[in-house]
Every structure is written in C-alpha cells, then in structure tokens.
C-alpha cells in the first residue's frame, strides 16, 4: 500500500525544486501522523482531483471531468460523505492510425467526507464545460448564526 501510494503520487506541478521538497516533507509528516491540518493528500485510484470550497450556505465541490457525460456519473450522499463515481469513455477510431494517446479513459471512484452536517435533500450537481460542480447545502444546525447583542 505504501509503494502504491508513493509511486502513483500525482504530479502537482514542478514550479521550484524546493516546492517539491516541501511536498515530500508534508508527505513524510503525514506518514508519521504529524500532518499539518488542512492538507489532504490525493491517493491512487481516487481520480478525479477535487477542489472543495465553502460558502456560508453550502460546501461546493468541483472536479475536472472532460468528455464525461452526465449519464456516466453517479453521485451518492450518505451521512456526511459524498461519493462520485463514473466512467470516462473515449471512442477509438478503428480505421485511423494513432500518433499520440495521452488522454486516459477508465472508471473511477472517489469518496469525500465533508467537515460539517449537510442537507442531503437539497444537493445539486451540474456538469458544464467538463467541470462537475456539486453544491451541498449545509444543514440548519451547521450554519453559522448571527447573534444579536441587546443594548
């Protein structure tokens, strides 16, 4: 399991060699159980990479899925977990000669635990320009409440 996670580690960019060293250090820290909070490590077999943001009302989850049709995606919510699974199909032209094949196809699945309580009945998902956006409203309990000060 260690080797698998290690070698399938995605390339998050090589902007500077020191950044790479930083990432290595974070990874080792995580293995030692001293991970910095707020840093999540992408692991093998968990495509796609996800960006998670938060507004006052909802958690918003975005994933890049170019060429994936809405019908090939399956989004499930259980408790505080969201699971996105699906398959990316690329048609092969049998009569043509391929010079380059860099786009990958296949099935994927990814589960994510959200940091707070959610309202499962009002989850909305949209797929536009190859980007999946899932909007998960927070439950009434989890929303921040403004407290008025009486004078």
């Amino acid at each position: 399991m260690f080797t698998r996670g290690f070698f399938d580690f995605p390339d998050l960019g090589w902007r500077s060699p020191f950044e790479e060293m930083d990432r290595m250090r974070r990874y080792i820290d995580q293995l030692m159980g001293q991970a910095e909070s707020g840093y999540a490590l992408p692991r093998a077999g968990v495509f796609p990479l996800i960006n998670l943001t938060e507004s006052k009302e909802a958690y918003i989850l975005r994933a890049e899925l170019p060429g994936v049709k809405a019908g090939d995606l399956d989004i499930q919510a259980t408790g505080r977990n969201i699971t996105i699974s699906g398959e990316r199909k690329i048609e092969t032209d049998q009569n043509a000669t391929y010079h380059r094949r860099e786009r990958s196809a296949g099935s994927f699945s990814r589960a994510l635990t959200l940091p707070g309580e959610i309202d499962r009945d009002k989850i909305e998902a949209s797929l536009k320009d190859g980007v999946l956006t899932v909007s998960v409203p927070k439950s009434e309990k989890a929303k921040a409440k403004q407290i008025e000060i009486k004078s």
Binding site: D8, D11, A44, G45, F47, I90, S104, G106
Partner: peptide, 12 residues
C-alpha cells in the same frame, strides 16, 4: 482502454 481503472494524474 475501458477496462482498467483510471489513474490519478495531475496536470502537467
């Protein structure tokens, strides 16, 4: 191309 699992691949 369809049978295997998709691998994590960061952007280049």
């Amino acid at each position: 191309t369809q049978s295997r699992d998709m691998q994590v691949r960061g952007k280049q």
